[in-house]
Computed example of a mutant assay.
Amino acid sequence: MTSSAVRARGLTKSFGEVIALGGVDLDVPAGQVHGLVGPNGAGKTTLLGLLLGLAVADEGSLEILGAAVGGVLGVPDGVAGFVDGPGLYPGLTARQNLAALLSLRGDGKRRASEVDDALHQVGLTDVADDRLRGFSLGMRQRLGLAAALLTEPRLLVLDEPANGLDPAGKRQVHRVLTDVAANGTAVVLSSHRMDDLAALCHEVTILNLGRVVFSGPTSKLATESGDLAYRVVTSDGETARRIAGETPGLRLDGPGRTPALRADPDALVVRGAVPAVDDLVFRLVGAGVAVRELGPVVPPLEAAFLALTGTDEPEADDAPETGVDTPATSVTAEEAAR
């Protein structure tokens, strides 16, 4: 039986008149990646702060790594991560930052090779001796992850770990998190990127206005979106539109509604359930029309997110990716609690 890394029941947290969390339940087994997603102001950062021991809930119970948490700041040993960006020293090099972390934790005698291993894990070996102030946002995120990994956590809590990463960097971070979870560490990460959730997470929790609107496997989340819009490119757009209009359970979008139609005259966008789309493909092939492209206009997880949160578009906190350092909040929960 998989042990529980996080078990929360009825977590409530208010800031003045604002209810940041209103009775949140959360279960995260060891060895799994759990996604936390929601619009701006949904309560994600507050919940991450509770898991890192940066804040205390007003009501409810929280168990982390089998220990009850509450009443005072701090969490058990074995918890690491960052929220609102990793806390790092801009005047130090990447290697010096990690060495300073070990020294602050009383682990200064640990071998330098462990620092090098952590830098290698996140793909920063080539810039190990460069000062942090020249790092991009994505490089700082990776260094923050390396700092957390140095503590050998059993619970890793990360706020937008793929923020600012190029495709190669994101692939490397995904690999690290997958390996960490495979070795028994629980990972809780916030993200507004549905592709990250689909690629990494066993389960997700969606928050909206401080309350849980969905919690469960990503496969189940994909079914919550109802009818989806699909972009279809064929060898004969005119015939395909006629057949789509005759297919039960489908409706056609016009070019004014769907920008995906404007780029290709042989493209059409249909809305409906999967069986109806399957029927359309069968009818097209039967009529001798080749199907060159078929895929959802909006990924299923993103569509479910929009449906469950009642928003018209994904959360808009994609800040420009610059090399300017963001305010530091924490590197590890242990350091933050001191």
Rank of each mutant, 00 (worst) to 15 (best):
A307C: 02
G286W: 07
N40F: 09
V33C: 06
A198S: 14
D227C: 10
G49C: 06
A20Q: 11
D325N: 02
A287E: 14
V176E: 08
L124N: 08
L101T: 12
L221V: 07
V331M: 13
A186D: 09
A5F: 08
V285P: 00
A168L: 13
A263G: 13
D264R: 00
T239I: 00
E238K: 13
T234S: 14
R105G: 11
A148F: 09
L306P: 00
P314M: 11
L177T: 12
L21Q: 05
G288Y: 08
L143C: 02
R271N: 05
G123L: 04
G31Q: 10
E334Q: 14
L149N: 09
L250K: 11
L88R: 08
R262W: 01
V233G: 02
G144N: 03
R283Q: 13
A55P: 02
P167I: 13
R7N: 05
P29G: 03
A68I: 01
S225V: 15
T46E: 04
V269L: 07
D129F: 08
A229N: 10
A290F: 04
P29S: 03
G38K: 07
D129L: 09
A182Y: 02
G184Y: 10
H174C: 02
G210L: 07
A182K: 14
H192Y: 09
V233E: 09
G295F: 07
A148Q: 07
R283N: 08
E160S: 07
I64K: 06
L101V: 14
P320H: 06
L92Y: 11
D116L: 11
T218Q: 04
R231Q: 14
I64T: 04
R9Y: 01
L47A: 06
V269C: 07
R338A: 12
S190W: 04
P265Y: 00
S136N: 08
G245P: 10
F282L: 14
E321N: 04
T218R: 12
L54I: 10
L268T: 02
D159T: 02
S61K: 01
G43K: 03
P300I: 12
T178K: 14
S136G: 15
A287M: 09
L132Q: 03
A307N: 09
Y230M: 10
D27E: 15
S235P: 06
E203G: 05
V270W: 05
L124Q: 08
K109P: 01
G226M: 09
A162K: 00
G169V: 12
G43S: 06
E152D: 14
L73M: 11
M139Q: 13
L52D: 03
G323D: 13
P29Y: 03
K13R: 15
G144H: 02
D264I: 01
L150Y: 04
G23V: 03
L73K: 14
V83N: 07
G106C: 02
D266R: 05
A240T: 14
R175P: 00
C201M: 08
A30K: 12
L65S: 06
V188H: 06
G43V: 04
T329F: 13
H34Y: 15
G60W: 06
D279M: 01
